[in-house]
């Protein structure tokens, strides 16, 4: 598991009070975290802060899993 996806899942679990050990990189992050679209918008800001990147929304269209999101973050680093 990459550092990015590990950090991403830990951050998301902390923010949305989920069990980090239960999260898997290939899971749909909306379903795994039980979040709605508003919370997803907040998550983007947290990730931008954590990884010091900008994540344009249009690059995130179709991204569903933790692993896919981590890959987008890595491309921007």
């Amino acid at each position: 598991m990459s550092d990015t996806v590990h950090t991403l899942m830990a951050l998301a679990a902390r923010q949305f009070k989920a069990d980090a050990s239960a999260l898997k990189p290939e899971q749909d992050l909306f379903e795994a975290l039980g979040i709605d679209s508003f919370q997803a918008v907040e998550l983007i800001s947290e990730l931008e802060d954590e990884f010091d990147v900008e994540l344009p929304d249009y690059e995130l269209q179709g991204v569903k899993t933790f692993a896919a999101l981590a890959a987008k973050i890595d491309k921007r680093r």
């Binding site: 800001s45 931008e48 802060d49 344009p56 929304d57 249009y58």
Partner: peptide, 10 residues
């Protein structure tokens, strides 16, 4: 022209 959202920091 992008329709993208920006954070509070940005």
């Amino acid at each position: 022209l992008s329709g993208r959202s920006v954070s509070a920091k940005r």
